[in-house]
Simulated scan of single mutants.
Amino acid sequence: MAEIRVEHLRKAFGDFVAVQDSSFVVRDGEFFVMLGPSGCGKTTTLRMIAGLELPTGGKILLGGEDVTMRRARERDIAFVFQLFALYPHMNVRRNIGFPLLAQGMPGIEIRQRVEETAKLLRIDHLLNKSVSGLAGGDRQRVALGRAIVRRPKCFLMDEPLGTLDTEFRDLMVHELRELHNRIHATTVYVTHDQMEAMSMADKIAVMNHGVIEQFG
């Protein structure tokens, strides 16, 4: 895992400045939450760390390496979206193992990694089930499994519990923090929900109008 360092980050879309002069450090193994209302720049910041958007100015360092202008595929990160983006024609096992298959990993190793990951997420009993028949919480665990199985340097999560009902959300907040404690992954998590942020974060950055107003 690795430290993420953001220095004077800026992103403009024409005349609109979505993120202005943002600087912060996410320590190795830290659970870092970006909190703020819709349109405040938190998702844009996350997308720049991921390499899905390139910044207008500033720097992003991952494990001490300057990755500012590198595309997503050139950064060792895993992204978990609000919408699960699972492959409906594949079962749980194949969904989780897909990134490893794409990397050309041998079948025996894929099987071992998938089973370890499923056990960690307590979905090993669902491996041969179709994802289309799963409940929301289980679908989100599969999406997390697909990110974890690669063992990337860091995890970036954009409101991953946003589509779940309240009961599932409360359960997943607890489980995500428990999972973090077990794997000690550097995590940047975006949410507009204060309770989610306070329940999970080691550190919180409060964003508004493209600016980090509080950090600690």
Rank of each mutant, 00 (worst) to 15 (best):
L127K: 05
L101V: 15
T187A: 07
A18I: 01
L83V: 07
Q103K: 14
S130Y: 05
M69T: 08
V173P: 00
A50H: 08
Q194S: 07
H174D: 11
F13A: 08
I148S: 00
I183E: 08
L171F: 12
K203M: 08
R113L: 05
F168Y: 07
L161S: 14
V114P: 10
G39V: 08
G104N: 02
P99E: 08
R73E: 15
Q194K: 11
D66V: 04
A201K: 01
H184N: 15
D21C: 12
D193W: 07
V33K: 04
P88F: 02
R150Y: 01
R93G: 00
L164E: 09
G216K: 03
Q82M: 12
V17F: 14
Q20S: 14
T45E: 01
R70G: 06
F98I: 00
A18F: 04
R169C: 04
Q140I: 01
F84L: 02
I77G: 05
M207Y: 02
I60W: 12
G41R: 01
D165R: 13
D165A: 14
G107Q: 13
P55W: 05
E30G: 11
Q82T: 08
T163S: 14
F13W: 11
S199N: 15
F84Y: 14
I108V: 12
L171G: 03
L127H: 04
S22I: 14
V131L: 02
V19T: 05
D21I: 09
D21V: 07
F31W: 08
A72K: 03
R70C: 05
L46E: 10
A72P: 14
I123G: 00
F79Q: 04
M90P: 02
G58V: 10
I123N: 00
G133K: 06
E53V: 14
G137E: 01
S22Q: 12
L127S: 00
